[in-house]
Design a binder for these strands. Sequence first.
DNA 1: TAGTGGTCTAGACCACATC
DNA 2: ATGTGGTCTAGACCACTAA
Lengths: 251, 251
Amino acid sequence: MERSGGGGAGGAGRGDAVGFRPLYRQVYDTLLRRLADAVWQPGQILPSEGQLAAELGVSQGTVRKALDALTADSLLVRRQGRGTFVAEHDDKQSVFRFFKLRPDAGGAGAPQSHVLAITETAASVDERDRLALVRSARVVRCERLRSLDGRPCVLETISVPAALFPGIAACDLPNTLYSLYASQFGITIAVAHERLKAVMLPAREAELLGVASGTPALEVDRVALDLEERPVEWRLSLCLTDTVHYLSVLR
Amino acid sequence: MERSGGGGAGGAGRGDAVGFRPLYRQVYDTLLRRLADAVWQPGQILPSEGQLAAELGVSQGTVRKALDALTADSLLVRRQGRGTFVAEHDDKQSVFRFFKLRPDAGGAGAPQSHVLAITETAASVDERDRLALVRSARVVRCERLRSLDGRPCVLETISVPAALFPGIAACDLPNTLYSLYASQFGITIAVAHERLKAVMLPAREAELLGVASGTPALEVDRVALDLEERPVEWRLSLCLTDTVHYLSVLR
DNA sequence: TAGTGGTCTAGACCACATC
DNA sequence: ATGTGGTCTAGACCACTAA
């Protein structure tokens, strides 16, 4: 691993005139690249700290700092005595990483899904905007109704670039889409931006959700980014919030 | 500093039968206690890593780990070459830590506030619930109208326990309340939980916001906790979201 | 020039998991 | 018994700030 500056007891560190990147940052980027290239699959174990340190020519402490940062970004999971693993996002905990709706009264039954329609078409203006697509691009668009405790409460329209998800229209969509993205298409969702608004439900959407037209709903406009910060999914959700709320924790 | 387990080259570490707390965690708690007791005021500089290490009888690396954790929790700010400081939450960046509304179109003018009413009364049932108060407790309740770009868009009702904020009703409330809590009452807001719903505006609230009754609004129900995780403020906001949205970043 | 935090290393020991 | 991550230490050098 090449040093661009910084200290090091046994190293030959020297400051460059411009641009200083810590060694552990370079290690972070190297490992992130391997994760993006699916060198290690989700759930798979990584080499030990010592092995990575030897391979990259840095100390174990430096590798540890990079691994800790990747763990903080939810890309790795570390288990004392066992090893370091690529994070899988299909367990109970991870589902709620991106699903922020909670019942007002305790409990948290997992949401259920029912696909209303799925088609491949030319991208709309909004879709091109959110997904940074060219004018000729095509998308796969899916409309889905989600229920909590058997009661429909979310109507969502999901759009993904057809080029990135070949054949997804024919897939049997699981409740947790992001694990499908990872396992079938090698795409890991790293972060999502959500914009929330309160809106009045249009007639069609109100009927699908089984409420009166004009009922207020929470509109969630989400763009999900992969490891390389490319927008790979746009999701527009309409949520009924009479017995459910959106939870946000500010630190 | 007493060791309850864990390793250490020069230490006399040994595992206890039950309960294992890393040294750096103990240092973290010690420093957190001093922050909660206002031993160091916001903006003030802390002793250097070396001085703290000597005082607490641990290595500099262990102190560093505790300081890094406190920095990650936004309680400290570290500046290379200068020192470690108690975080102040009155600068531009910190205002937006708890204020998540953003204009749909770029820009982000700071919000302005106008106090409609402020009174001290007996706590309501909701207030006792949110603030964990006893039946006889009193609160100071404030109703405030906030504007973005000169346009009223948020109507909020703020409740705080009167016992924790003596004389606050007579204060000149600044736009950023949390810096007042810190400077005048020694209370630091560490975290806040927000529950979001879409609701229809009642007549009175609609009139205050200058819109038609029945307009959909985003209801934000926030409980703010201090360093010791005590609920110290309840804030119920009604937000118009036609030209503004609530921003949430999921990782 | 001196002092601070930031990085990097090397080595020790501990807690945990597996065999 | 072995290997893994977790903690702790000691010491070196670098980057940054201020006097």
